[in-house]
Design a protein around this nucleic acid. Sequence first.
DNA 1: AATGAATGAGGGTTCATTCAT
DNA 2: TATGAATGAACCCTCATTCAT
Lengths: 213, 213, 213, 213
Amino acid sequence: MAIPKKGNTAFPDRAAQRELKLEALHECAASAFNERGFHGTSLDDIAAALGISKPALYRYVPNKQALLYRLHGISLDAAEAAVTEGEASPADGIERLRIALCQYIRSLTASSSACLVLMEEGAMTGAAAADILARRRAFEARFRKLVSDGIADGSITPCDPKLAVFSVLGAGNWVSRWYRPGGARSGGDIARAMSQQLVRGLAVDPSRYRLEG
Amino acid sequence: MAIPKKGNTAFPDRAAQRELKLEALHECAASAFNERGFHGTSLDDIAAALGISKPALYRYVPNKQALLYRLHGISLDAAEAAVTEGEASPADGIERLRIALCQYIRSLTASSSACLVLMEEGAMTGAAAADILARRRAFEARFRKLVSDGIADGSITPCDPKLAVFSVLGAGNWVSRWYRPGGARSGGDIARAMSQQLVRGLAVDPSRYRLEG
Amino acid sequence: MAIPKKGNTAFPDRAAQRELKLEALHECAASAFNERGFHGTSLDDIAAALGISKPALYRYVPNKQALLYRLHGISLDAAEAAVTEGEASPADGIERLRIALCQYIRSLTASSSACLVLMEEGAMTGAAAADILARRRAFEARFRKLVSDGIADGSITPCDPKLAVFSVLGAGNWVSRWYRPGGARSGGDIARAMSQQLVRGLAVDPSRYRLEG
Amino acid sequence: MAIPKKGNTAFPDRAAQRELKLEALHECAASAFNERGFHGTSLDDIAAALGISKPALYRYVPNKQALLYRLHGISLDAAEAAVTEGEASPADGIERLRIALCQYIRSLTASSSACLVLMEEGAMTGAAAADILARRRAFEARFRKLVSDGIADGSITPCDPKLAVFSVLGAGNWVSRWYRPGGARSGGDIARAMSQQLVRGLAVDPSRYRLEG
DNA sequence: AATGAATGAGGGTTCATTCAT
DNA sequence: TATGAATGAACCCTCATTCAT
């Protein structure tokens, strides 16, 4: 009785296994794309890293372009969640900016690869490219809104929001280039320190943000 | 007299012309690499953009890898010049950091393309990769030295120089992604504003750096 | 008694069902081969059209080549039956030729697909190819015999039997390209009209064959 | 003076050579497509038959689909020329039909391969398929017009022009399957004999067309 | 019994590079 | 000198076939 019937558990097993493999594929592919670029990574590379044959990849992804699109989607999901968290805070503008930035950077360090694909948008074409570009533009716009809110409520020094956001996001994005898990400082640690430092440059009252916190 | 002798003047002409074409090639290739990536850019693309035939490229560059190596070299020349300028200033640490950063960002916007190749280091192999990596590491180390100097002389808030430098350089590098000449603000303008904002986050006395200067 | 015993009746049921499915497979495959060619049709296509999985096909056919071989066999069965019917008639040569041709064309329109595979003989190899080729050659030879018989008995104008047969069979084969069931004229109708017209060109007394009969 | 300068003749030479190679490619590809089908023929096959490497093909044709399209175009050029010749004749309907048919069959035997591609229209897609299909439909319509003209002027027995044309063209098309140059009868010979036989079946006065002419 | 998973072989296509002219 | 021509290597993707379940 305790022993589940074959028909019952086979499906969940299959589905679960598939999910796991899919996730491994995403991690592996994202990592490779980040290291060697989209065009510099062959499906052979990915398949070899996963220990499967190249055609086996096609059971999980329809083609290479779609894989890139999917990874960008995952990356943006995390990015959007980060900014949403900032927006949801009851604090003033600069603090909400800090939260968003901190969560964003943390997301880049968390899922070691699936979220690191900030590059190679140009490798996509057609509707996929348009979709990703639009989402990223919207993401940046929400960050700019946080900045202008901060200026309005007096917590952020008047400045060009576009430049300010490019600066802090650029600094964050760069993390994906040098961060390697297992280093001296954890991802969360890095996210906290960097977001403090970056936000401090914009604060009307910089003393609120002490470095080395 | 008006007719220049073949032996005398033809050669200088040739050399000058060659130099010009070489520079155009560099600009063109760097621009393409930045837009579509090293592996995403074919020599056909570059040749077509230059209006010459593909084999003609080989009169100027021994091969594609060497071209990337050379472009990274040019990029690093400018970067090193920027940090040198900062180091040469008699001011205190934070101000020297600001100068170096400002010059660095300006260099990224100046030679519209030849200096924007911050990516695709992974596309190089062997000695070339090692050389470029070493130079970039050294470049970053000099920036870290500026930070620790600033901490020592009391102009920069105590912090992790590694993180601080990654932040400001990352923000700067990102410029190559969104900056397009002919926009509302000039490259120098952008460099000034961004370097002020970024350095402000590190300053013991942030009031020294007002935004929108 | 009402409940059939397993051993007795279950098997016939199974066998009958299997036979039905096999026939559906043949129809489906032949139709696809005719439309997109042997190499242009994948087993996935056939499986999908049948609503079964790809490996399930292998329960009915050992491999793709064998499937083609079998279809050619079915096609030739019908063709040979047609010529046999002509030969069996007590009429004179031209009339026996007409009957064979008419039945042949009718067979091409009847089993909407299984018999339409006149193409792609080249896709077979080895013994299968040799077998099919030999049968088709023999089939054509029997048609030529009908023609020479007709010449001998004075019902067919002296001519090159090879050319004459290639003509009438070619015209017939072409039917498989344009005929679609459900059109204005039935397959039998078409077969009758075409065979009359074609045979009329060979008849010593063409007035025997009025068009639009 | 009589000796042409280098610059003058080099171009014609190149162009001429290229034209020759292109024609060889067309012949070779058409022949292969006819024998093994479009999908059954690999570019490797064609390249090997031409004694060149596979990528070299791409200097002459943009891709495999375009090659098929081009061959169909060549084939249709000849077919249209044939029917034009029939239409241009001052004779009555049946004779004009005979001329068109004869020229059509001759064209199939003439350029041993480039004109034999009557199959595999289904392998084309999009605009190419539509274009070819439209041209072939128009070609057939012109043949039907010849038949209805013949019926109108009393030289052709009343009949279904559609069926009549399918018959004679089918018989002709089939030639591409069995004709091999160098056989007992020349292409022109075959075309004459077949067209006479086929047209005889439609003639109001069949005695005009004696077989074995 | 029937299917999801997996793969070796091969196909179309691109590209960096060389060479003859 | 500068270019058309050519190619080996590699890449993305498909497919007939097998196997574990």
